[in-house]
C-alpha cells in the first residue's frame, strides 16, 4: 500500500489516496470546468497540462478565480 499524498490546497491540508492529475483533483474538488487558474509551489500549471501533470507529495497548490474587486 502506498503512503497517502499530503498536499495543501488554498492553504488547507488535504490527503490524496492516489497520485491524481490536476484534472482529477479539480473533479474531486467539484471545480471541473470552471474558469480558474492553478499554481503549484509558486509555478503556474497551464490548463493544457491539467490532464497529464500529476500531484506530488508536499505540493502547495493554489486555485484562484476572478471575483468582484476594484482597488
Amino acid at each position: 500500500m502506498t503512503a497517502p499524498i499530503r498536499i495543501t490546497v488554498n492553504g488547507a491540508p488535504r490527503e490524496l489516496a492516489a497520485p491524481l492529475t490536476f484534472s482529477q483533483l479539480l473533479d474531486e474538488l467539484a471545480l471541473a470546468g470552471r474558469r480558474l487558474a492553478v499554481e503549484r509551489n509558486g509555478e503556474i500549471v497551464p490548463r493544457s497540462r491539467f490532464g497529464e501533470a500529476r500531484i506530488e507529495d508536499g505540493d502547495r497548490i493554489e486555485v484562484v478565480m476572478a471575483v468582484g474587486g476594484g482597488e
Partner: peptide
C-alpha cells in the same frame, strides 16, 4: 472592468455563479 483574483472556495458553493 477591473476584477480581483482570489482563492476559489473549496468544497462549498459548487454551483455558485462566476463573475466572468
Amino acid at each position: 472592468v477591473t476584477v480581483a483574483i482570489r482563492r476559489t472556495n473549496i468544497g462549498q458553493n459548487a454551483g455558485e455563479p462566476n463573475l466572468l
